[in-house]
């Protein structure tokens, strides 16, 4: 399993840690910038996926494993969750529209 070949063997974890912290702070500060709500959501979700990729790739070592393992995990989790959400979301809007207030 290849890791960073120069410096401390634990570099990759702490560099990832620093990047994750920066991203987290960016996500927290995002609200202060006046942007349309939908854009804020896209921004937060995108950064959430970046964090997830860094944790999966570096901490959980997927970046250094054989590619097919990472593909299996990512496909299993993402595709299934997306399918469930893609159908449930429009349903929730139609429930909202049809609810008697």
């Amino acid at each position: 399993m290849s890791e960073s070949t120069h410096g401390s063997p634990y570099r990759v974890y702490w560099i990832t840690w620093a990047i994750l912290l920066v991203i987290t702070v960016a996500m927290l500060m995002a609200e202060r910038f006046h942007m349309p709500r939908w854009f804020l959501i896209v921004f937060l979700v995108a950064f959430m996926m970046v964090k997830a990729t860094m944790i999966g790739g570096n901490f959980m070592h997927l970046r250094f494993e054989k590619r097919n393992l990472a593909v299996m995990v990512a496909a299993g989790l993402l595709v299934t969750s997306l399918i469930l959400f893609a159908y449930i979301a429009p349903e929730s809007w139609s429930v909202l529209r049809s609810t008697v207030r």
Binding site: Y87, P90, E91, W93, S94, S98
Partner: peptide, 9 residues
């Protein structure tokens, strides 16, 4: 009573 467009899909 689900969304009919979903029904189509």
């Amino acid at each position: 009573g689900m969304n009919p467009y979903l029904g189509m899909a």
